[in-house]
Simulated assay, not measured.
Amino acid sequence: MLAVPDQPCPPPPAPLAKDSPVTTPTSKVVLITGASSGIGEATARRLAASGHRVVLGARRTGLIATVAESIRTSGGTADHHELDVTSLESMRSFVAGARERHGRVDVLVNNAGIMPLSTMDALKIDEWNRMIDVNIRGVLHGIAAVLPVMRDQGAGHIVNIASVSGLRVDPTAAVYSATKFAVRAISEGLRQESREVRVTVVSPGLTHSELTDGISDPAVREAVRGSMGVAIPAAAIGEAIDYAIGQPPEVDVNELVIRPTAQG
């Protein structure tokens, strides 16, 4: 419809600055594991800037305290809680604390993960077991802790961070890939079982984070770091999660794969 000449349409409102916290009627309580750095930290900052109330969990309490304080200084709402995802009791305490403080739990971002890559014949069995504990059991513990709460609420959203290594297997990544294939399988099973709870699996490609620091084999570590020249910032993954949880209740974004344009 054309505007009447003597009644011009008002100019559109000025866009909000990307990092400016906003208050919206759709503000959610979002719990984020592994929030002390990388994707977890970037996601906390992005969601807080969108007006959500974020609760940061990690073992490194000093770091998450600093991140939470930075978010609050910027006008956002953020709490932090010590968390070891390999412990079900720790995860339950994390969820209970957030629920007690905010009255509900709307979103869990199961982000905590490790990536100590190595060839199979290196027989780094302790590292294999640690990946299983953090990358698989940690996700299961998160689901176990929030699912009863979300069922009681009649709504909720679980976001599980997988990897493009859950879509393919490369040398040195056999066990890591196995854990991320598992995350995708768990997510899809949970999605099919759920009606009130939405489930999203996010699979990042090469992304700037501390994951490479956990690679104990010097040759593998340097090879992986050499490929990071095309890596995208962790903020790109935070943006994708913000998009997924911002959809209306009847829309479930099931899976997002986010790679650098230059990644093969």
Rank of each mutant, 00 (worst) to 15 (best):
I39C: 06
A223Q: 15
Y176G: 06
S87P: 04
D121K: 07
P116Q: 08
N129D: 15
S187C: 09
T179A: 01
A155C: 03
V220Q: 01
A244Y: 01
R221C: 06
A178H: 05
P148E: 13
S187T: 14
L47Y: 08
P13A: 13
A235G: 01
I186T: 11
A42Y: 02
L88C: 05
G57R: 07
A173V: 01
G76F: 07
V183D: 04
V199R: 06
R104S: 15
L211V: 08
I64C: 04
E100N: 15
D126L: 09
T61L: 13
T179L: 02
S163W: 01
V257W: 05
R45K: 15
I71Y: 11
I161E: 00
P233L: 09
P116L: 12
L206Q: 12
G142T: 01
S70G: 13
I125D: 07
I215P: 00
D170C: 02
A78G: 02
L63Q: 12
V109H: 08
V175L: 09
I215C: 09
N254E: 09
L83H: 02
M115P: 07
Q263K: 09
V105E: 03
T26D: 13
V109Y: 05
V201K: 09
E210T: 13
R92A: 04
E222D: 14
P171L: 06
D170S: 11
V257Q: 02
R45A: 07
P116S: 10
A235N: 01
Q263C: 10
L2K: 07
P148H: 11
I258F: 03
A44S: 13
I71A: 06
D6T: 10
T61V: 12
H141W: 05
H102R: 13
R53V: 02
V105G: 01
V4T: 12
S163K: 00
A35D: 03
R195H: 14
L147I: 02
D84Y: 00
A42N: 03
R92P: 00
E188A: 12
V230A: 05
D217Q: 00
A235V: 10
G166H: 04
D217Y: 07
R59D: 08
L16P: 04
G34A: 04
R46E: 14
D252N: 15
V175A: 09
A96H: 11
T207K: 08
L190G: 12
M91H: 09
I64P: 01
D217C: 00
I136G: 00
